[in-house]
Amino acid sequence: QEVTIKMGHAASSKHIFQTGLEMFAAKVAEKTNGNVAVEVYGDRQLGDDKQLLEGLQIGLINGALVSAPTLPLVLGASGFDALQMPFVVSSYGQLSEVLTSDLGDELLATLDDKSIKGVGFVEAGQRHFLSAGDPVTETAKFAGLKTRIVPIPLHKAIWEAIGVNPVGMAYGEVYSALETGTIDAVEINLSSIQSESLYDAADQVTLTGQYFWPGVIMLSGATWDSLSDADKAAVAEAGRETTTEAYALAAEQEADTIAFLKDQGVTINELSDLDVMQARTASVVDDWVEKDPMVARFVDAFRAGN
């Protein structure tokens, strides 16, 4: 064995990010004949998303799996907003296909000039709507709900268009804030409702599916450069295969998670007028398409597949 790559992620060691990185580690070992060993460190052992990205930039850590929405924020890699255009992607399968196409590679290559090498994706799950109190079954009911969102420009634009009152709040305070009614709702993926026990604090889920939540598998530039050409090719191949398998797994998990949440007494609602919600956010897509050519190309690719 020649190289050991320590890779961190900020989710718990039961999260699909852990499974995804372990998948990647196994493939890397196999394809490099054991030349390259990947070790996975979850539970923020190497830091949270922001620290992981900074750590890659300053060469402190070898590799990481970080949520895509953090990349525009911390690295200024605005192209990654393309993966979260509201209601543009039709399914896990479609997203997986585009991500493993040449277009996906081009997006990853935008990280090159930040001395980071992107090699693949692991999906944390489509985002839905968790609220306490009355079920949210039509778009009009979003009006005025105090909703915790991730405070980034894209999400702010989306949720203001939908009509909620977006609240910025530290993630650690969300459970207690939902429980006591400091906030009414949170936009989130189902697996987090399960892993953070948020179903104890709020019990209405509306399956809105506004966007997906890809994580990006990355190596620091220095770590990547230390690999032989054969190993580089093998790692890139492992990343691409991991993307396909991780997306299949995420799609499969979604159904299991819904069953689990129902067992916990959570009501799973559909939005009767999802088309209204989608129409409200259409202008956000137009705005972002104008901002970044990469976003435009992804939107075209997704719409072509529909």
Binding site: G144, K146, I149, P151, K156, N165, P166, V167, G168, M169, A170
Partner: peptide, 10 residues
């Protein structure tokens, strides 16, 4: 007022 300063926490 059911409003929020999105930047306050940061």
């Amino acid at each position: 007022f059911s409003a929020s300063l999105l930047w306050a926490e940061e």
